[in-house]
Design a binder for these strands. Structure first.
Lengths: 120, 120
DNA sequence: TCGCAACATCGTAATTTTCCGATTGATCCT
DNA sequence: AGGATCAATCGGAAAATTACGATGTTGCGA
């Protein structure tokens, strides 16, 4: 993947977090973690139809992206890092509804500009 | 990628949208689109350090995920599909702050359970 | 109609992701 | 110490992504 130079740090981070979440197994891990508050690796292995090593790798990806955190010495216990989720939501909001844009938020942009068809 | 059978339709869709957003160039496209309301392909090619064909492919990915929409006959004009963004934000909220969880939303889950260290 | 300009799509090479089994490292119990 | 259990990491194969140039396609003006 080529590096895009003009990117802000925020965009960079958003892309990384989105990428980490962009996998069915990892979304499942996140929802499970949200439901249970905290899980051992084994709990997640039971839930997912994947090998233990694979689940472990997914956990690593999520951890590196800051989406989950945790692990106690010798008894790894994961949980959601809600700050990151909140940050992501915030990012989306700022994208979608920049200051002074209350009007646009309602109907979307396409109606105001001459663009709205689906297929070319 | 293996298909995870237990996945809800929502989780499936979330993973797809996240995946589409999980690329620096595509995040840039989205932010640019938000800033300008609507863009021709050429505008985006000017902004990104990528070949025209590559940008076109990124646009296709975003379109297939429902993140952008648009294109008029013969003069393709893209814009954000804010509904999708809103849906995604909603999904994140439901994950992070399920009903009857006001307390947990503030401090995160980790403090309440015995799990909070960073490194193993 | 011819050619141009704007995009999409195709073919394809390089890189990355995804998954698994095997191995290693830690902890705990006997 | 020896064995069992749980989880991370390694090595490698298969599949997907990313990027590019070349080629199609469409609409417009000369």
């Amino acid at each position: 993947m080529k590096t895009i130079e003009g990117l802000t740090e925020e965009e960079e981070r958003a892309a990384a977090v989105f990428r980490a979440l962009g996998n069915p197994a990892r979304v499942r891990i996140v929802t499970e973690l949200a439901r249970r508050q905290a899980c051992f690796t084994g709990d997640l292995v039971d839930v997912l139809p994947l090998a233990q090593s694979t689940v472990s790798q997914h956990l690593k990806v999520l951890k590196e992206a800051g989406i989950i955190s945790g692990a106690i010495e010798g008894n790894p216990c994961y949980c959601l890092d809600e700050q990151t989720i909140h940050w992501l939501v915030d990012f989306c909001y700022r994208i979608c509804c920049p200051p002074g844009e209350e009007a646009a938020a309602a109907g979307g942009c396409c109606e105001t500009v001459e663009c709205g068809a689906d297929e070319r």
